[in-house]
Design a protein around this nucleic acid. Structure first.
Lengths: 123, 123
DNA sequence: AAGGTATTACATCGCTCCGTGTAATAGTGT
DNA sequence: ACACTATTACACGGAGCGATGTAATACCTT
C-alpha cells in the first residue's frame, strides 16, 4: 500500500481521503457530462439563484429578480438552463411560475465547493 | 419549522437534506469565487487530468499527455490553470515536473457530481 | 560548451456564453 | 373582448475560453 502522504494540507472540512485508486479514468462521455454539469454551475447568477432556492424552497421569477436586482429576462434565461438540465423544477400557480431545487446532491456540492474555497484561502 | 418535503426525488447518494435556511445568500465575492472554481472544473480535459491524478498520486506532463492522447501543450496549459488556482501542486525531479492534487475536498466534489449525474439519469 | 528532452509562454482562430432589448405567449380581472 | 401582469423566445454584441503552432526556457548528458 502506498504510504499515506503526511498531512501537509490538513483538510478543514473534508474527510481525509488520500486517493481513489479504484476509480477508473473518466470516459469521454462521463467527462463531457461532468463538464456540462460544472458549466451550469460556473456562473454567478445561477449560483445565487441556487442559493436562494436552497433557502426558501420555492420562488417565482419576479421575486428572484427583485431579490437579486437583475432584469427578469436574465433571471428567466438562467432558470431555463437550470430547468433544462433538470436541476430545478417548476410549478405553475396562476400567472406565477415557482421554481424549486430537485436534487439534494447539488446542495452538497455547493457546500463542498465553499469548503474548498475556505481551505484554499486559509492556507 | 417548514414541513419536510415528501421524498419525491428519493436521493440515491446524498443524505436527505431538505433545505439550508440558515445559509445566507451568496455575496458577490462568494459567488464570483464559486464561479471561478466551477469554471476550472467545467472542462473535460481538466476533469480527466484530475481523475488521473486522483488515482496515481503523481504524474508528469508527458505521461499525462500520452495517457490522454493529447498534445503536450494542451495538457500543460490546463495543468497551469489548475496550478494557478492551487488545485494541483508540482514537484521537480530533473527534467520532469510531477503534478499532484492538493485538496481532498476536490475529490469529494467530483464524487458528488458524478452522483448527481447518476441521479438525474436514473430518474 | 553543445545537443537533446521536457515544459512553458505567447499569439491566433474559432466557438460558446451572458446580459440586454424587442417581441411573443399565457394567465388574470373587469 | 380588453387591458394588465408574469414569463418566455429570439437576435445581437461583447467578452472569455480552448486547442494548436511557434518560440523560448530549464535541465540533463556528453
Amino acid at each position: 500500500m502506498s504510504p499515506s502522504r503526511k498531512p501537509e494540507n490538513s483538510p478543514t472540512c473534508c474527510p481525509i481521503q488520500v486517493l481513489l485508486p479504484d476509480v477508473q479514468p473518466l470516459t469521454d462521455e462521463e467527462a463531457g457530462d461532468l463538464e456540462d454539469l460544472f458549466k451550469i454551475l460556473a456562473n454567478d447568477t445561477r449560483l445565487k439563484l441556487l442559493h436562494h432556492l436552497a433557502r426558501v424552497e420555492e420562488m417565482c421569477v419576479c421575486d428572484l429578480s427583485t431579490a437579486m436586482e437583475m432584469n427578469v429576462q436574465a433571471i428567466s434565461n438562467q432558470l431555463q438552463k437550470l430547468s433544462d438540465r433538470k436541476i430545478v423544477a417548476t410549478r405553475r400557480s396562476g400567472n406565477m411560475i415557482y421554481y424549486r431545487l430537485i436534487d439534494n446532491c447539488l446542495i452538497e456540492i455547493l457546500k463542498q465547493a465553499q469548503c474548498l474555497l475556505i481551505d484554499s484561502k486559509t492556507k
